[in-house]
Design a protein around this nucleic acid. Structure first.
Length: 250
DNA sequence: GACAAAATAT
DNA sequence: CATATTTTGT
């Protein structure tokens, strides 16, 4: 009995993370790529919310564009969002750009999606051949159910895949939220591999925490509420407007 | 050093 | 945009 997996991220995921994006300068200045041992035994700072830095409120606070941003880690939640986006768009129209737009995850680049999409397609292909036989490798992909149409190029792509109650995606999330703040208690039910062997649910989050080069500088609490991110009509005439929930309806 | 994941190049 | 190759992290 699988409970209806809500597409809406749990509150944990929507934690009003303070840090929005890594400030380029800080990232470079600190340059803690490796050799960064956080041996904060006791307190540590699970939530850098205080000590608001002045940031760059003046100018140039542009999200590290054109700068080397840290390696993106695809968490199950993020992947879920990815799958969700693809499902809504339709496997045919599921191109990196469109997917990226629908995901509305700030900081997520088209390249990120493209790369992931490539791997995902390989996974789907592998699954069709292997017959659901997934290896330990695909644990990430296995964490999210694969919509039927994905394995079913029935010819119709984005026609009949209706969305029950159409749960819109949350507002723009920073990839930082996925990278860091993610609650380690991600209890995603392992529905696929029920071979009695429960995979580690620690996920990369755990190991991520100890080596993520990402700057964890307490940023100010400026929440980027630029939630004006909806998908434009990507379909033929059909205007698929996503209503973001947090945006107070006009 | 092998492997997987993500990035980058074609 | 898709695919191939390379880099990077575990």
């Amino acid at each position: 009995m699988r409970d209806e997996e809500e597409e809406l991220p749990s509150p944990e995921e929507l934690i009003p993370l303070s840090q929005s994006l890594i400030t380029p300068h800080l990232a470079i200045a600190f340059d803690l790529r490796s050799t960064y041992h956080r041996k904060n035994g006791s307190s540590g700072h699970p939530l850098p919310q205080t000590t608001p830095i002045q940031a760059n409120s003046s100018a140039g606070d542009e999200p590290a564009r054109t700068l080397k941003r840290p390696r993106l880690v695809w968490t199950p939640q993020l992947h879920k969002r990815f799958v969700d986006a693809v499902a809504h768009i339709g496997i045919k129209n599921a191109v990196p750009k469109t997917i990226m737009q629908l995901m509305s995850v700030e900081g997520l680049t088209r390249e990120n999606v493209a790369s992931h999409l490539q791997k995902y397609r390989l996974y789907l292909k592998r699954m069709q051949s292997g017959g659901g036989n997934v290896g330990e490798s695909d644990r990430l992909f296995a964490s999210s159910p694969v919509p039927a149409h994905f394995l079913h190029p029935t010819g119709r792509q984005s026609s009949d895949h209706f969305i029950p109650s159409f749960v819109p995606m949350a507002a723009t999330l920073t990839h930082q939220q996925f990278l860091h703040r993610q609650t380690p208690a991600v209890n995603f039910t392992s529905q696929a591999n029920n071979n009695g062997k429960v995979m580690e649910q620690s996920l990369f989050l755990a190991r991520q925490s100890q080596h993520q080069p990402v700057l964890i500088r307490p940023s100010s609490l400026h929440l980027q509420s630029r939630v004006a991110n909806y998908a434009e009509d990507l379909e033929s005439g059909a205007k698929t407007v996503l209503t973001l929930f947090p945006t107070r309806q006009d």
